[in-house]
Write a protein that binds this DNA or RNA. Structure first.
Length: 552
RNA sequence: UGGGGCGUGGCCAAGCGGUUAAGGCAACGGGUUUUGAUCCCGUCAUCGGAGGUUCGAUCCCUCCCGCCCCAGCCA
C-alpha cells in the first residue's frame, strides 16, 4: 500500500532521456496480444507495464490484436481479451486496434522491399528452407531464388495473394544475410500462403504476414514510440530495426525488452493453458484454478490486487520466478481492506441453547477496522450452527492450543453471546449430532463477566435463517513449484485435490442473494465470492484463505 | 557450439566507484485484538567464482562457472 518511492526502471530511464532530448513528445505504447487464447497473469504484468507507462507519462497505450495467423485465432478470444483489459481498469481509447486493418499497407511495403531488391519470392519448401538456414554454428546458404528479378517476384507475390499458388509452395522472404550469426536475419519469411478465411478480413487474403514483418510496422503506423515486449523477442530486434531503415515508415518506433513474469506452482504459457482446457483438466479458460485473468476474476481476485501485484514487480531484464505467496499477499492485502465480513459454517454442528428461547437480531459492523462500511444485520436464535472443527470433547486441550468450544467450557460467539457447552448428543454410530449448551446473559458487546473466560471466538450462523450453500476451496493446480521445468510433462504433476467442493454449508441470511463480483471475508476462514459459473445455486468460491500463523 | 541476455539473502528486487548493501514477500521472535485475521515492534546478506585496475569495487576490465532465448512458412 505504501508508496515508498519506487525506483525508476530502465525503460523509464530511456523514456526520460528521449523526452528531454526531444526525440519524442508524447509516449505511445501498446499491448499486442494474439487472439489465440485467454490472457493470463503474465499478460497482466505486460498490460500494467504498457498501460502504466502511458498513464504515467500522459501518453496512450493501444490494445492491438496481432491477428496475423487465422489458423490459431478466434473471435471468442478477442472478446475475452477486451473484457479482461477493461476489467483490469484500462481504457481502450480509440481501440481496439487490429493488425489485420493494416494488411493492405503491409502488402504495399512488401512490394516496396521487392522493388528495392530487399525481398524475393522463394520456392524452397519448408524442409529445404530449414536446410538452407544452417545451424547455430554454421552459416546458411543462399536460396537459389534469391536473385530472381524483382518484376518476377512482384508477379509471383500477386499470384500468391490471389490464391494461384498452393500453400507451402512459395514464401516472400527478406534478402538480408544467410551467414548472419543472428538466425532471425537469415532471409526471414515475410509472407506465407494460408488459403484460409480470417476472422476479420474474411477470404480477402490468401497470404498473411509473419510476426516479424507485421509487428514493427504496426507500431510505426500507430506512432508507437516505445515498443515494450518480453525478453524472448530480443533476438528479433535487429530485424525490427532492419525494417525501420529499409521501409518508408511514418515513424520510427524502438523496441525494448523486459523479463516476463513467471509464477511458481502454475504455468503461464498460453499453449499449456490451452492444453489444460482442451484436455479437460480444468473446466474452461475461466476455471478458478487457472492463472488466467478471467479465472482469477471468477476465483474472486480483484483487479486492484492484480494491479498492485504487477506494480510490485520489477521491469528489468532478469527472468526469475516470483513466489505465488507474493501474489497471495496482494490478494489478501486488498481483500482485507475492502471485503465485507460475513459468517459461513462449512461443516455445521447444531448447538441448542437450553436457556434461551428468543429470536434476536444484531447489528454488526461489516468491517472491524472501517466503520464507514456500515452495519449488517445477523439473526440469532435458540439453535445455531458452528463448525464441527470448532468443538471438542477433549477437556485436556490447553487454552492456548484450542481456542474454541470444549465441553464444559466457554467460548465467545463472534459479535454475539458467550456460550458454554453442556452436553453432547450422539447418534448410534457415535457421531456427535448436536451439542446442548447455554448462553451467558448480557454478554453481547460486553466483556466477559468475572469468572468466565471464553477460550476464544468462533463464528456461527442461525439455524433458522441461514442459507444453504456450496463452498469451493481451491489448492494449487500443480504439486511442484515448476511443473514446466526441463523435460517435465506438467500433466504428471496436476494436483488431484486442487478443487474441494463442500456442500451443505450454511451462510448468514444476508448473503443468500450475494452477487458475483462482490467480495466477502468469511470470518476465520478466508475470502470468498459468489461463483459466476453456477448462479442457479448459491455457490461461493474461496479466493484465498486467511493467513494462518499458529502451529498446530 | 554461433549470436543475444542475465547472475545481489528462501523468492522478487534497489544499487549507476566511497551507502550501516533500500524495500517487498516468506520465515522466525514479541505486543495488541470479540476473526488463531488485520495492526504494531524486532530478527534475518557482503553482492556466482578467480584474478586485475583503483586510496577505495556489488558497481570498471579479464577469464571462468551457471541459467534463459534464437535453427516455425508461431507470436
Amino acid at each position: 500500500m505504501t508508496d515508498v518511492e519506487k525506483p525508476i526502471n530502465f525503460i523509464q530511464q530511456v523514456i526520460n532521456a528521449d523526452l528531454s532530448a526531444g526525440r519524442v513528445k508524447k509516449i505511445v505504447t501498446r499491448f499486442p496480444p494474439e487472439p489465440n487464447g485467454y490472457l493470463h497473469i503474465g499478460h497482466a504484468k505486460s498490460i500494467c507495464v504498457n498501460f502504466g507507462l502511458a498513464e504515467q507519462y500522459g501518453g496512450i497505450c493501444n490494445l492491438r490484436f496481432d491477428d496475423t495467423n487465422p489458423e490459431k485465432e478466434d473471435e471468442e478470444f478477442v472478446q475475452a481479451i477486451i473484457e479482461d483489459v477493461q476489467w483490469l481498469g484500462y481504457d481502450l481509447g480509440e481501440g481496439p486496434f487490429y493488425a489485420s486493418n493494416y494488411f493492405e499497407q503491409l502488402y504495399v511495403w512488401a512490394k516496396y522491399l521487392i522493388a528495392e531488391g530487399n525481398a524475393y519470392v522463394c520456392e524452397l519448401n519448408a524442409e529445404q528452407m530449414r536446410e538452407y538456414r544452417g545451424t547455430l554454428t554454421e552459416a546458411g546458404k543462399n536460396s537459389p531464388f534469391r536473385d530472381r528479378a524483382a518484376a518476377e517476384s512482384l508477379n509471383l507475390l500477386e499470384d500468391m495473394r490471389l490464391g494461384l499458388i498452393s500453400e507451402g509452395a512459395m514464401t516472400l522472404r527478406a534478402k538480408i544475410d544467410m551467414a548472419s550469426p543472428n538466425i532471425n536475419l537469415r532471409d526471414p519469411v515475410l509472407y506465407r500462403i494460408k488459403k484460409m478465411a480470417h476472422q476479420r478480413t474474411g477470404d480477402k487474403w490468401n497470404i498473411y504476414p509473419s510476426y516479424d514483418f507485421a509487428h514493427g510496422q504496426e507500431d510505426a503506423i500507430e506512432g508507437v514510440t516505445h515498443s515494450v515486449c518480453t525478453l524472448e523477442f530480443a533476438a528479433n530486434r535487429p530485424l525490427y530495426e532492419w525494417f525501420t531503415v529499409n521501409l518508408p515508415l511514418p515513424s520510427i518506433p524502438r523496441q525494448y525488452e523486459f523479463g516476463r513474469l513467471n509464477l511458481n506452482y502454475t504455468v503461464t504459457s498460453k499453449r499449456k493453458l490451452k492444453q489444460l482446457v482442451e484436455q479437460g483438466h480444468v473446466d474452461s479458460w475461466s476455471d478458478p484454478r487457472m492463472p488466467t485473468i478471467s479465472g482469477l476474476r471468477r476465483r474472486g481476485v480483484t483487479a486492484a490486487a492484480i494491479r498492485n501485484f504487477c506494480n510490485s514487480l520489477a521491469v528489468a531484464k532478469t527472468d526469475g520466478t516470483v513466489d505465488m505467496a507474493q501474489l497471495e499477499h496482494f490478494i489478501r492485502d486488498d481483500l482485507n481492506l475492502n471485503a465485507g465480513r460475513a459468517m459461513c459454517v462449512f461443516k455445521p454442528l447444531l448447538i441448542t441453547l437450553s436457556n434461551y428461547n428468543e429470536q434476536e437480531q444484531f447489528k454488526v459492523p461489516c468491517h472491524p477496522n472501517r466503520q464507514e462500511l456500515g452495519l449488517r444485520t445477523i439473526d440469532f436464535g435458540r439453535q445455531i450452527y458452528i463448525d464441527r472443527s470448532d468443538f471438542s470433547e477433549d477437556t485436556t486441550l490447553s487454552r492456548k492450543k484450542f481456542k474454541r468450544l470444549v465441553i464444559g467450557d466457554y467460548v465467545r460467539l463472534r459479535s454475539a453471546y458467550i456460550i458454554r457447552a453442556d452436553e453432547v448428543i450422539k447418534d448410534a454410530a457415535g457421531e456427535i449430532i448436536e451439542v446442548i449448551g447455554s448462553l451467558v446473559p448480557d454478554t453481547v458487546g460486553q466483556d466477559a463477566p468475572e469468572g468466565i473466560r471464553p477460550r476464544g471466538v468462533i463464528h456461527w450462523v442461525s439455524k433458522q435463517t441461514a442459507a444453504d450453500c456450496t463452498v469451493n476451496v481451491y489448492d494449487r493446480l500443480f504439486t511442484v513449484a515448476s511443473p514446466d521445468e526441463g523435460g517435465r510433462d506438467m500433466l504428471d504433476y496436476l494436483n488431484p485435490d486442487s478443487l474441494v467442493e463442500m456442500t451443505g454449508c450454511k451462510v448468514e441470511a444476508g448473503l443468500a442473494d450475494a452477487i458475483a463480483g462482490d467480495h466477502y471475508q468469511f470470518e476465520r476462514e478466508g475470502y470468498f465470492t459468489r461463483d459466476s459459473g453456477s448462479l442457479d445455486n448459491l455457490v461461493f468460491n474461496c479466493t484465498i484463505g486467511l493467513r494462518d500463523n499458529w502451529k498446530a
